[in-house]
Design a protein around this nucleic acid. Structure first.
Lengths: 217, 217
DNA sequence: CGTGAGATTGATATATCTCAACAGAAGTGG
DNA sequence: CCACTTCTGTTGAGATATATCAATCTCACG
């Protein structure tokens, strides 16, 4: 919640410069190198921020879900988006216009602050992401990802959560081949730690799952 | 050059809140979880920002050399350093005090701006770092690293550059075992692209080196 | 000149990627 | 509403590149 700390009056000012954007699954919001029109806040759905190599394989930096925002850095500093953004399912988000938010940020210290904090948050996330990749085995990464997804809502512990993005995309985010993701998911199921049905995942044994995260497989 | 865009008067204000810090090789500037005292600008030497896993192996986020700064995000947003910083050779840097720079940033828009831009720069660097790891072979990564190091100064094309950090540390930054780094360095030498002597590396064939970066080995 | 940290080289194991075939779901269109 | 096509995910078998382990070497420094 990027502007969660602002008082209502300021938030109203921001709402006025927002524009709703709807995307069908697979549609691109922007591509690497495009001029920035502003940053985005996901309302519902999922957007993957990713790079694509010359050989065509992709590296997912992060999948953003409802409530999360991305692209703030292009308001503060760069003029072009440094990666691609694509809807991984039907998605609705708001665009916060670049020129307008810059105007508001200049007028109000706190808004500029919020943007800077958001960028710092992204930096922190990337660091821990790199850390996970370097230190954790594929199975541990899958386990950690499941844990982090299932703490979002309380009832999700009971009913499980739904994967909004295709599995191949999640696999890319976790830095492994989609086949490997598939196998590791199965391994966790066979150990009785989770239940998988279609796009639903439910954690059966949270303690055991965390053991996988910490001790490897 | 984080404050390079500021007019002299403002820079003088900042100089006043700086404190020189000297570190011997191997000494820690701060550790993960320490309360932030401010951010740092490297004057000479090299500092590695890294994480250490429970099993003891390290993941180097970046090695900072003269002129580069790090830790700005702890001024903007977090209160604790999210990684370890260690001098990889005898190093001199300046600390910009947290409370003081916050005071100046509040008083002057432009200073806050500089900090935010620096953080955004770090974010961008990490992204391209992850990209390289995902898409490039170890040999390509070594080649790219050498290229990037040797463009710093013009005369370095002729005399080569000196590695300030130990090879094992550079290897960690490039995401490979130090043995692999050693082998890849040798491979590039055997191909006649570079010359290596001790800690000096000189690029003999820049074109061929870039070919390795782009086409793999 | 001796000592030790850092670097190189060699041999090996293994985990994951890759390629390929298959299965199932979902969407399309008549 | 049912075939048909397409897309996504699953499973299997095998190759390969790099991590790992271990031995040796080099050089800086005391």
């Amino acid at each position: 919640m990027i502007f969660g700390s602002l008082r209502e009056e300021l938030r109203d000012q921001i709402v006025e410069i927002c524009r709703i954007v709807s995307l069908k699954k697979g549609a691109y919001l922007f591509r690497e190198g495009d001029l920035s029109k502003g940053f985005y806040i996901v309302n519902r759905g999922a957007v993957s921020l990713h790079k694509i190599s010359s050989e065509g394989d992709q590296q997912v930096l992060k999948i953003f879900s409802a409530g999360e925002s991305f692209g703030e850095a292009t308001v503060i500093s760069f003029t072009r988006y440094p990666a691609n953004a694509r809807a991984e399912c039907d998605t609705m988000l708001v665009r916060v216009d670049k020129a307008e938010i810059q105007r508001l940020a200049r007028a109000n210290e706190q808004i500029a602050q919020c943007l800077a904090i958001a960028v710092a948050g992204h930096l922190k996330h990337l660091v821990s992401h790199m850390e996970d990749r370097a230190f954790l085995s594929p199975e541990s990464r899958v386990a950690k990802w499941i844990s982090s997804q299932s703490v979002r809502g309380a009832f999700e512990a009971a009913y499980g959560f739904e994967m909004e993005a295709p599995k191949r995309c999640v696999a890319d985010e976790l830095g492994m081949a989609s086949e490997t993701f598939s196998r590791k998911l199965r391994a966790l199921k066979d150990k009785g730690l989770i239940e998988v049905s279609k796009k639903q995942i439910r954690v059966v044994n949270p303690v055991g799952l965390n053991k996988i995260v910490e001790l490897g497989d």
